[in-house]
């Protein structure tokens, strides 16, 4: 932790490497033809699941940092978020190109289905977040950046809903992801209520502490 630039580089590269493991696994299984009897369905499920998992990981960074004081975690957040978008994009492409073979009949026919609508909405809301993930966009948007990026809550809720609405009977996995999401969101609601109740004095004090721990205020939360 002595050398912040080195730590940042380490965290960044390890996160990127970690996020590429599912892709490598899926690519290997695809190339060796070992995705099972229904490879398209398998690819769809895996890419969708990893998008959801990484979304939740993105949302876990801030609470984890606040609770543990591990400020070195922060650079991982943007990478996790971008990979959530990347796997979401793969999921959408697999659905459109492989599942529906770009058939307008099939694709349009699905548009009335609640789980499909939730999926499209979730992905669409991720686009502006991925597009404004650069330092430049952050600076340009100023305080509006944080406001915009609160969309991730809607993205994650819609993603869990998408999953819940499509399962046949085994609601346990989507419910588990949903429970984790509720936990992560209630932490934020709790934190925001505490700030509001505590009032401006301690809020000022809190800002000071985050600044001393090397955290710029507009990047928190």
């Amino acid at each position: 932790m002595r050398n912040p630039a080195f730590t940042r580089r380490m965290v960044t590269s390890l996160t990127v490497a970690g996020c590429l493991i599912p892709l490598a696994f899926v690519a290997y299984r695809t190339l060796t033809g070992t995705l099972g009897a229904n490879p398209i369905s398998n690819l769809t499920n895996r890419t969708g699941l990893w998008s959801l998992r990484l979304l939740l990981a993105t949302l876990a960074v801030t609470p984890l940092r606040r609770l543990s004081g591990w400020t070195w975690l922060m650079p991982a957040r943007r990478i996790l978020g971008l990979f959530a978008f990347f796997y979401g994009l793969l999921h959408l492409v697999v659905y459109l190109a492989l599942n529906q073979a770009f058939s307008a009949t099939l694709i349009l026919g699905d548009l009335s289905r609640p789980f499909i609508i939730a999926g499209y909405l979730s992905f669409t809301l991720m686009v502006p977040l991925a597009a404004t993930s650069t330092m430049g966009a952050m600076r340009a948007l100023g305080p509006r950046w944080q406001l915009l990026h609160r969309l991730i809550y809607a993205v994650a809720i819609l993603a869990v809903l998408h999953y819940l609405l499509l399962v046949k009977i085994d609601f346990q996995p989507p419910e588990a992801y949903g429970a984790l999401l509720v936990l992560l969101l209630s932490y934020r609601i709790g934190a925001s209520l505490r700030r509001r109740i505590a009032g401006p004095v301690s809020r000022h004090a809190q800002t000071r502490t985050t600044q001393t721990s090397g955290q710029s205020p507009q990047r928190s939360d």
């Binding site: 398209i40 026919g109 699905d110 289905r113 789980f115 609405l165 499509l166």
Partner: peptide, 17 residues
Amino acid sequence: RVPWSQRYERRIGDFFK
């Protein structure tokens, strides 16, 4: 009555539904 369509199916081993 399930969330997905019953209009089409994928025969295992086929690409097109």
